[in-house]
Write a protein that binds this DNA or RNA. Structure first.
Lengths: 214, 214
DNA sequence: GACTGCAGTTACCGCAAGTAACATGCTAGC
DNA sequence: GCTAGCATGTTACTTGCGGTAACTGCAGTC
């Protein structure tokens, strides 16, 4: 029964890991990303070394935490991206999905993107920052694949698709971040404005009347 | 001679501050953003408390450091943005200026944007992250102003210009970050691809032949 | 019943941020 | 000239965190 026992142990270890991650999640979402390992361990009802046995170091824990949320977000984005609809509708749906996600759970978003804000004024000791980029990169790569697969970009399509994938994701991210900071308009308006930008409205807009030079 | 003395002292204090910033610059660019206050003080030939008297805390020092570089970058961007040329040329010139800057001094760029990477594997004790966003935000706001001032966007132009400003800056940033990581093409190609995206090529591209349903 | 392996603990190290209290030199007023 | 004040600098400390070593108790195994 060696294998059977192994699987039992494995299962309980995974279960424990999940519990620890949930505890970490609670603390991080409450105290911000500056949460200490001690605090997380306390929330989980155990002590530090166990966390280290499970996750190696703080970066490992945060990476695991980030991966959970990142995977979840990417799943919803994929769903929006795969919906059977015209291109512009799909783009708008994807933008809206992303923005709805960050609007619904800004704490999670801030953890994923800006690992160094919440918490004490003299916070220290988070070593994330390695995690915000992975999310952006992954989104960029996935979008690039979708673009290359669906849009006819002529020769050099691979490179072009990747540039656009990362560029569009960055646009969405930065606009979303700004929008989340100072809710200047409804989500739908933002979605529309961004889609307009992607649809080339900048190119066809006229010059302003009293513009300097023209 | 009270005022005269005051100004003398003031001048020397400012000078000292500049020297300290240059020393900090050297250390941060050499050791990454995980550089300790002790190391910076040593490089400047003094000890920690003086740094704290000048900058308050580590965040203050890093903010001052970031402001220097941010201001410099914004100056060059403004120059490119103000050049007398057609809109597309200006856009390309601005993109190129930004990308040339991050290509020329990736260390500075990484400090401004990803304050948590270089340095020891178990780095700790940087509390920036408060600085990357300011740069993006400032660029976004400035671009928004330029857009609103020069482009005729009809009613609601203020909101639209800000959305676009932040969105375009984010696009530039994310694409630049990815491009810097894995130099996949020449700078000029990237500039062209991004400008094409902004010029609506995504909207007019056809669907790919064997696409799944689309 | 001794043996192995795993969850868990306490107690510690190292290191960096930040601070208090002490030393030193310069200018100013008497 | 001599002391008062102030800026500049120092040493030596506290606090708090990440990370680890070494010990403890407890399942199941031969």
């Amino acid at each position: 029964m060696d294998t059977r026992q192994r699987t039992d142990q494995q299962r309980s270890a995974d279960q424990r890991r999940r519990e620890l991650l949930e505890a970490a999640d609670r603390v991080v979402l409450r105290d911000g990303p500056g949460a200490s390992m001690n605090a997380i361990a306390a929330e989980a009802g155990i002590t530090k070394p166990i966390l280290y046995r499970h996750f190696g170091d703080k970066g490992g824990l945060y990476a695991a935490l980030a991966k959970r949320h990142t995977d979840a977000l990417l799943d919803s984005l994929r769903a929006a991206l795969d919906a059977p609809a015209a291109r512009r509708e799909r783009v708008e749906a994807t933008l809206d999905t992303y923005l709805a996600a960050i609007e619904a759970r800004p704490q999670v978003y801030r953890f994923l993107m800006h690992p160094a804000e919440g918490g004490a004024p003299s916070d220290q000791g988070f070593d994330t920052g390695r995690h915000s980029i992975p999310l952006l990169r992954r989104m960029g790569e996935e979008l690039a694949e979708v673009i290359e697969e669906r849009v006819d970009l002529g020769p050099d399509s691979r490179r072009l698709a990747r540039v656009w994938g990362h560029g569009i994701v960055g646009m969405m991210h930065a606009a979303g971040d700004w929008w989340l900071g100072e809710q200047p308009c409804a989500r739908a308006e933002l979605v529309h404005s961004l889609a307009d930008l992607l649809w080339g409205r900048l190119a066809v807009a006229g010059d302003r009347a009293g513009g300097p030079g023209f």
